[in-house]
């Protein structure tokens, strides 16, 4: 059974995270609404990527990483002892900064997650592959070379392939860790359009260095600084009338 089915809002209370002795995240409290794009902004090293990775427990892979606090997706506690981490990650997909297609065919890349969760029938897989590639609006570009290696694609295509690969797991939430920072403006534009389309069906959380990007695509924006969540509000509020002086100084480019 999938306890996360249909649960798309995230609620975090009193999150503290330590790498060894280093206190990397301090008392983070945030409610991320469903079917919206939420952006995390802030200078390098402020903890925004670290926090993003706690949402699908990728921080479990980091040694010496200790975390406290209450994490809920819908009403499911994702740090409970009996949480099925693989099921969590199936439902909370992740797209990384650097496109990371597997060294296999485009088809096999997309079919990886469905196969992981036991779908082996070819007709079913074919359907998922086509649907996922269509949702990532890359189907027309690759439909004639599904059996070709994914590594032969351009960087922008690879990133959209990785998005399609995540979508093939049928996630409820999609985490994106600076997904366009390695891409040219045209590819970036395509991915931003894509996010606008995808948020009809799922919740998107994106970490970005690019404030214009946050302003363009995000419904909500959270500003992180030195491991703290300084301000979190509707994007237009953050960018036009921030309540905290630090937020204002950052968005006007005066530090960071």
């Amino acid at each position: 059974m999938n306890p996360f089915q249909g649960k798309m809002n995230i609620s975090v209370k009193d999150c503290n995270l330590y790498y060894g002795d280093f206190h990397a995240l301090k008392n983070i409290n945030i409610e991320i609404p469903e079917k919206k794009v939420t952006a995390f902004i802030g200078p390098s090293g402020c903890g925004k990527s670290t926090f993003l990775k706690t949402l699908n427990r990728m921080n479990d892979l980091v040694e010496d990483c200790r975390i406290e606090g209450e994490y809920k997706i819908g009403d499911v506690d994702i740090y409970a002892k009996d949480t099925d981490i693989n099921m969590l990650r199936k439902n909370v997909g992740m797209v990384f900064q650097k496109p990371n297609p597997f060294p296999m065919s485009i088809y096999d890349n997309i079919a990886f997650a469905p196969r992981t969760f036991g779908i082996t029938k070819k007709s079913e897989l074919d359907e998922i592959v086509e649907l996922s590639l269509r949702r990532a609006s890359i189907w027309d570009e690759v439909k004639d070379r599904l059996k070709k290696s994914a590594l032969g694609m351009s960087g922008g295509q690879q990133q959209r392939l990785c998005i399609a690969r995540s979508l093939a797991a049928d996630p409820q939430i999609l985490l994106m860790d600076e997904p366009t920072s390695a891409l040219d403006p045209i590819s970036t534009g395509k991915i931003e359009e894509l996010m606008d389309e995808l948020k009809k069906d799922l919740t998107i959380v994106i970490v970005t260095h690019n404030m214009q990007q946050a302003a363009r695509i995000a419904d909500k924006t959270a500003f992180f600084l030195l491991g703290e969540l300084v301000e979190y509000d509707d994007t237009d509020v953050i960018f036009t009338s921030p309540k905290d002086e630090k937020t204002e100084r950052y968005i006007t480019g005066r530090f960071g």
Binding site: M58, L61, R89, M94, K98, F112, T116, R165
Partner: peptide, 21 residues
């Protein structure tokens, strides 16, 4: 590349599946 392992884990693959596939 470490990114490949991360990518597989992020799709819900177990450690064993990540290693073998």
């Amino acid at each position: 590349q470490g990114g490949l392992r991360e990518g597989a884990y992020a799709l819900g693959a177990s450690k064993v599946r990540t290693i073998f596939k």
